[in-house]
C-alpha cells in the first residue's frame, strides 16, 4: 500500500516536473483547454441562472383582467362576484387601482413620470388562475372575460412562461451539445500533447520496458500529465466563467430589472464546479490513455 502510494506520488511529481519543464507550452495548453471548456461551462452558468430566475417567477399561467379606467368601483365589484361564481376559475386576486399606483410609486424611476400625470393612470385589475391551465382552456376563459361589461383588456400571462420554458430547453440542449463537442476537443488536445510527451520520452519508455516495467507503470506519469492538463484547463475555465459572471452581474441585473425581475448573476455552484473539474480531469485522462495505446506496443 505504501509502495503503491509512493509510486503514484512519484508519477504525479514527474508529471508536474514535465509540465514545469516547458512552462510556456504548458500555460498555452492550459489556456487552450480552459477557453474551450469555458464555453459549455459559461453556457451552464447562464442556464442555471435562467432556471433560477424562472423558478422564482410564477410559472403558473394567469389571466390579467384590466377594467376600463373610467369604470367605477361598483363595476369592479360586479366583475369580482361574477368571477367568484364562474366555473373554471380557481382563484381571484383583486388589485385596486390605488394600490397599484402606490406600488408603482415605490419605483424611483417611475415615480417622476407618474407624478406629472393627471390622476391615477392605472385601472382596477384582477389576476385570475384557472382550474384548468392548459392553453386552450385559458384562451377560452380570456375570450369569455373580454365580453364582460367595462372590461377593457384581458391578457394571458402564460405565453412568456411557455416561451421561456422552450428557450431553456433549447439552452440545455445547446449546453450539452457544446459540452460534447468541446469535450471531444479536449480529448484531442490531450491526445496530441501526450503523443508529443511520449515521443519526447521514447527512450525512457523503451528502457522501462526492457527493465521489466508493466504498461501500468509506464502509463502512470503520462496519465497524471493528462489529468493535470485537464484539471488545470478546468480551473482556467472555472476562473474565466467566474470572472464573466462578476463582470456581467451589474449590467445584466439592470437589464433584468427593467422587466420587474431581480437577478444576481451567480458563478457556477459547487455541483457544477465539481462536474466541470471532474469531467476535465477525466477527459484529459482519456485522451492520454488513447494516445498511449500506440506507444506501448513496441517491446
Amino acid at each position: 500500500m505504501k509502495v503503491w502510494l509512493a509510486h503514484h506520488q512519484d508519477a504525479a511529481l514527474l508529471a508536474l516536473r514535465r509540465l514545469a519543464a516547458a512552462p510556456v507550452n504548458s500555460l498555452l495548453s492550459l489556456l487552450a483547454i480552459g477557453v474551450a471548456l469555458s464555453l459549455p461551462a459559461g453556457g451552464q452558468m447562464l442556464l442555471a441562472n435562467a432556471l433560477h430566475l424562472a423558478g422564482t417567477t410564477s410559472a403558473v399561467p394567469q389571466i390579467s383582467i384590466f377594467m376600463a379606467s373610467t369604470a367605477e368601483r361598483r363595476a369592479a365589484a360586479e366583475i369580482e362576484s361574477r368571477l367568484g361564481k364562474y366555473g373554471g376559475v380557481k382563484q381571484v386576486q383583486f388589485l385596486p387601482r390605488e394600490e397599484t399606483l402606490a406600488r408603482m410609486k415605490t419605483n424611483p424611476g417611475l415615480r417622476d413620470v407618474i407624478e406629472v400625470l393627471p390622476g391615477n393612470p392605472f385601472p382596477d385589475a384582477f389576476v385570475v388562475t384557472a382550474t384548468d391551465d392548459r392553453p386552450e382552456a385559458m384562451e377560452k376563459l380570456a375570450v369569455e372575460f373580454r365580453q364582460w361589461p367595462k372590461v377593457e383588456h384581458v391578457q394571458l400571462d402564460s405565453a412568456w412562461v411557455r416561451r421561456l420554458d422552450a428557450l431553456l430547453r433549447l439552452g440545455r440542449t445547446a449546453v450539452i451539445l457544446l459540452g460534447v463537442l468541446l469535450g471531444a476537443g479536449l480529448i484531442a488536445i490531450s491526445f496530441s500533447l501526450i503523443r508529443m510527451q511520449a515521443l519526447m520520452h521514447r527512450a525512457e519508455i523503451e528502457v522501462s520496458q526492457l527493465l521489466g516495467a508493466t504498461d501500468g507503470f509506464i502509463r502512470r506519469p503520462f496519465l497524471y500529465y493528462g489529468v493535470l492538463l485537464g484539471l488545470g484547463g478546468g480551473i482556467v475555465a472555472w476562473v474565466l466563467v467566474g470572472a464573466a459572471a462578476l463582470w456581467l452581474r451589474a449590467p445584466l441585473g439592470d437589464l433584468i430589472r427593467l422587466y420587474d425581475l431581480t437577478l444576481v448573476l451567480e458563478a457556477l455552484d459547487s455541483r457544477d464546479s465539481t462536474m466541470l473539474l471532474g469531467f476535465a480531469a477525466g477527459l484529459g485522462w482519456l485522451g492520454a490513455m488513447i494516445s498511449l495505446r500506440q506507444h506501448l506496443r513496441q517491446y
Partner: peptide
C-alpha cells in the same frame, strides 16, 4: 533507481 521503482521496492 529505475529498476527498483519498476519492481516496486520500498523507497
Amino acid at each position: 533507481m529505475l529498476p527498483l521503482s519498476i519492481a516496486g521496492f520500498p523507497p
